[in-house]
């Protein structure tokens, strides 16, 4: 893997540490990511060292770095928040309690503004989404080479620490939201109501025409339904990827002088990160509120 050319450098920084099952016949790579010309004799689970191996893994592969960092950041969030919550009291709040309460109130206000039903799930869901995405995306304010340098010292070929720069992560979250949207729809309108909404809207008619329009309606509604999570996940991914890409470009072009560009860009990202976290949260609330409302 040629990390010394700008292209190689960028490619290296945008590659996840992947653990997956390679079938037999997959080419073997050495520690630098270069092909050795040999092939793997037996299907096995390995950490990929080059693109060829990643390609060979197909779907049965995990981005270890994304999952580890997102898990770590999520764990930090829930542990800190639950520790604070355990000591929550009705007296005068101080320190962390003050901060966590501020977040809770902020999320609660957002939920109350958009979601008019009653649900025990939606407020904690929104809070988790907001805080988790915020923390995950904030890792990218670390200088881009920090993580890969540490990973290289530990003998790992790749390390992409910002989970939200991985579309798997953002789309997984947005499709989880889709699952909740479907669940909320079915809970509030019943299975028939939910499918009726998909099949008999937006073109409405009476009698036999109603059923003739089903294919058209179904196509439109399913696309509309799927567009929500896809846009939700890709919006976050796109913003975070673009931000990260500029950091990597600056590092690739300017070396140690990268801070000239990356500091202002990081300051700008101090606005982008909360904004994107907020958008993801608020759209989740809006989608769920639309799902639970009667038409």
């Amino acid at each position: 893997m040629a990390a010394d050319t700008p292209t190689g450098y960028i490619k290296h920084h945008l590659t996840n540490l992947t653990y997956g099952k390679v079938p037999e016949g997959t080419p073997v790579c050495d520690a630098h990511g270069d092909l050795t010309g040999e092939t793997i004799q037996q299907a096995s689970w390995i950490l990929a060292r080059c693109d060829e191996q990643v390609d060979a893994m197909g779907f049965m592969a995990f981005h270890v770095d994304s999952l580890a960092w997102s898990g770590l950041m999520g764990a930090i969030f829930v542990l800190v928040a639950s520790m604070v919550a355990r000591r929550a009291h009705a007296g005068v709040p101080a320190g962390m309690l003050n901060f966590v309460e501020m977040v809770v109130e902020f999320v609660d206000t957002s939920v109350r503004d958009s979601f008019h039903g009653k649900s025990k799930l939606i407020a904690p869901l929104a809070m988790t989404i907001f805080c988790w995405i915020f923390i995950m995306s904030s890792i990218k304010l670390l200088p881009v080479d920090t993580a890969s340098a540490i990973a290289a010292a530990l003998g790992l070929g790749y390390m992409k620490i910002v989970p939200t720069v991985d579309p798997n992560i953002t789309l997984a979250m947005s499709f989880s939201v889709l699952g909740l949207v479907i669940a909320f729809s079915i809970m509030s309108k019943g299975v028939g109501g939910f499918f009726g909404e998909l099949a008999f809207h937006p073109f409405e008619a009476q009698g036999i025409t109603k059923f003739l329009l089903v294919p058209v309606n179904l196509t439109l509604e399913v696309v509309a339904l799927l567009a929500k999570p896809v846009s939700l996940g890709l919006r976050l991914f796109g913003n975070m990827f673009a931000g990260e890409f500029v950091f990597i470009l600056l590092a690739a072009m300017m070396g140690y002088w990268q801070f000239v560009g990356s500091v202002p860009w990081a300051i700008f990202h101090l606005l982008v990160i909360p904004l994107q976290s907020f958008i993801f949260m608020i759209l989740t609330i809006v989608y769920l509120s639309m799902a639970s409302e009667q038409h």
Binding site: A61, L67, S70, G71
Partner: peptide, 12 residues
């Protein structure tokens, strides 16, 4: 896209 997707859903 790969099984990371499923892993993240579980985390979520």
């Amino acid at each position: 896209m790969n099984a990371t997707f499923i892993g993240q859903i579980i985390w979520f």
